[in-house]
Design a protein around this nucleic acid. Structure first.
Length: 593
RNA sequence: GGGGUCUUAGCUCAAUUGGUUAGAGCGCCGGCCUGUCACGCCGGAGGUUGCGGGUUCAAGUCCCGUAGAUCCCGCCA
């Protein structure tokens, strides 16, 4: 046995016991005679003392050790003198008297400091190049352990509700809609390709047709799109599908799931059921389909206030069927004019003529280019509706609701960040329900907002014939702190209705057959009513860990361009490998010096 | 595909208006030190200022290009 204890478990309970510890040298403090070594492993840090009076040989070896050497130390556990207890260490009451020290491995000097304060300031690029060293930091290990705890809690909870985890293929069929696929050439049939799954969408529906009733999976998914701080080319979803349910049943299951995950991550259990609002309400009140409910500043409709206004700009918009809305950015009256200019530019890109505002100055007067056009009644109505006080900045938008809401939603978030009013330790969940079934492309074509298997809201089915653009879907997102955690829907289980859906989406008969033939066929063999959801597991872990980027909760993440800096992947391959899979390269020309 | 920011010692950063031999802290190496825990003290090594070109008597600093990183927009049913 190389060790009897870990570096995190010894305490005054072990006084006098002879122990053997293994770990990495965190720091060495050499006092000329006596030497202290902080020995570190995943479990903690234990101080080892080597004294030439106890063992000259051990002290000599201790003297030769350096940071990140791997050593084994044998010795007795001893209480520290009362005034030398280290309260910052879990093992700070004791120390191990090193009487036998063995160097198990030496180490080159690390390319960046591994202690927490300094490492967190080092360029991430450098840390990712040597991720195996970065992983030695307790904070990184905590992230991975948290992720593990979450995964365990998901599996336990889902199992307790009779869900079965089923693995679905990684080598699958390319589906051109949605994200770009990662392709895998097929050696056996030249010219054909597998695709890596963007999500196990069709498989999980087919599992329902197969009578599995309740399925889940911690599923790896792959999307070949440009990345963001919260996006990786490969990621993990908690994928869920259930038979014989309506949306209500699903909310219940996921509410409980999220509550267990919160608990397993050391956070308070949220009150259930989690709040809900319709997509329409979210857009009207928060200007976003993923509202951040950690603060107020809701969008206020001022159509009533300005119904008979003399202010021509507002009057014209109202007459044209547009809306006047505003938000009150509490305490932001002092923002530099430069900021308002920037927001005015943003307003123009959102289809607005400009951005009207009121800054409420110290003396209570309103500084604004438009207030002079308002009547006394309008001013008083404004003050009441928006709760306008000294120090406030009120921002107005007047245009179509379709443009105004997202624009003010954006300002609401930016302003709140500027004002620093978003509580850091709050967890505000909400369901956003009744998403539109379709969205319109620039060309006026309808495309699925969620995916083409999404069921329309029963009472909106007649709209499919008359005004399909207005149809709402039984589709929902679960949102936490303004982040979309997951998205799902009740599916269409009737092949005739599914066929109609493809018609509305103008999917040709050939496409229908080649891409979705298997699904349509399966639906025709007694598909049960079913629905599900997929939650972004990495994103959830990030929020639970309170980290900054999704890379904090992934052991071996890829950088912004999808490159694994440690493995140096992707890379070129041998001509023979290409030949085997019938691939010929057609590379863009390289500029010569 | 587009935009912002960044690149100086192993790491984090500094270097006035373009002006002497490019500095500091940490780390590293050596020496001293028997109760430290950010140990302390003394000494030392370490630089193609990302790369290429240009302007200038003179470029880390200004200009052009390029590479890499990072954040955002587009994209992500």
């Amino acid at each position: 046995m190389k060790r009897t204890h870990t570096c995190g478990e010894l305490s005054t309970k072990h006084l006098g016991e002879t122990t053997t510890l293994c770990g990495w040298v965190d720091t060495v403090r050499d006092h000329g005679g006596i030497i202290f070594i902080d020995l570190r492993d995943r479990y903690g840090i234990t101080q080892v003392v080597c004294d030439p009076d106890d063992s000259a040989a051990a002290t000599e070896i201790a003297k030769s050790t350096r940071s990140e050497y791997v050593i084994q130390v044998k010795g007795a556990v001893r209480a520290r003198p009362a005034d030398m207890v280290n309260k910052r260490l879990a093992t700070g009451d004791i120390e191990v008297v090193g009487t036998e020290v063995t160097v198990l491995n030496t180490s080159r000097t690390p390319p960046f400091p591994l202690d927490e304060d300094k490492a967190s300031k080092v360029h991430e690029e450098l840390r990712l190049e040597s991720r195996y060293l970065d992983l030695r930091r307790p904070s990184v290990q905590r992230g991975l352990i948290l992720r593990h705890k979450m995964a365990i809690s998901v599996r336990k909870y889902m199992d307790s509700l009779d869900f079965v985890e089923v693995e679905t293929p990684i080598l699958t069929k390319s589906t051109p809609e949605g994200a770009r696929d990662y392709l895998v050439p097929n050696r056996v049939t030249p010219g054909t390709f597998y695709a890596l799954p963007q999500a196990p969408q069709q498989y999980k529906q087919l599992l329902m047709v197969g009578g599995m009733d309740r399925y889940f999976q911690l599923a790896r998914c792959f999307r070949d799109e440009d990345l963001r701080a919260d996006r990786q080319p490969e990621f993990t979803q908690i994928d869920v599908e259930m038979s014989f349910v309506d949306a209500e049943d699903l909310y219940g299951v996921i509410d409980g799931l999220l509550a267990s995950v919160m608990e397993s991550s050391g956070h308070p259990r949220p009150e259930l059921p989690l709040p809900r609002m319709s997509w329409h309400e979210a857009m009207e009140r928060f200007g976003s389909d993923k509202p951040d409910l950690r603060f107020g500043w809701e969008l206020q409709d001022l159509g009533g206030v300005f119904a008979d206004t003399d202010f021509k700009v507002f009057g014209k918009v109202l007459q044209g069927g547009g809306v006047i809305k505003a938000i009150n950015c509490k305490g932001l009256a002092g923002v530099p004019i430069r900021q308002i200019d920037e927001w005015t530019e943003l307003a123009k890109t959102h289809g607005m003529g400009g951005l009207a505002f009121i800054r409420v100055q110290e003396d209570g007067t309103w500084k604004s280019p438009i207030v002079k056009f308002f009547s006394e009644t309008e001013i008083e109505a404004l003050r009441g509706k928006l709760d306008i006080e000294t120090g406030d900045l009120v921002l107005f938008a007047a245009e179509s609701a379709k443009n105004v809401n997202p624009f003010l939603g954006k300002l609401r978030l930016e302003g709140a960040h500027l004002a620093g009013i978003i509580p850091k330790d709050a967890f505000k969940f909400t369901w956003v329900t009744e998403f539109p079934l379709f969205e319109e492309t620039d060309g006026g074509r309808l495309v699925s907002m969620h995916h083409p298997f999404t069921s329309p809201l029963p009472e909106d089915v007649p709209l499919l014939e008359t005004d399909p653009g207005k149809t709402r879907a039984v589709a929902y997102d679960i949102v936490l702190n303004g982040v979309e955690l997951g998205s799902g829907s009740i599916r269409i289980h009737d092949p005739v209705q599914q066929g109609k859906m493809f018609d509305l989406l103008r999917v040709s008969a050939e496409e229908k057959e080649s891409r979705f033939g298997h699904l349509l066929k399966a639906l025709a063999y007694g598909a049960p009513p079913h629905g599900g959801i997929a939650l972004g597991f990495d994103r959830l872990a990030l929020l639970m860990a309170g980290g900054k980027t999704i890379r904090d909760v992934i052991a071996f993440p890829k950088n912004h361009k999808g490159i694994d800096l440690m493995m140096d992947a992707p890379s070129t391959v041998d001509a023979k490998q290409l030949h085997d899979v019938h691939i010929q390269l057609d590379l863009p020309p390289v500029l010569e010096d």
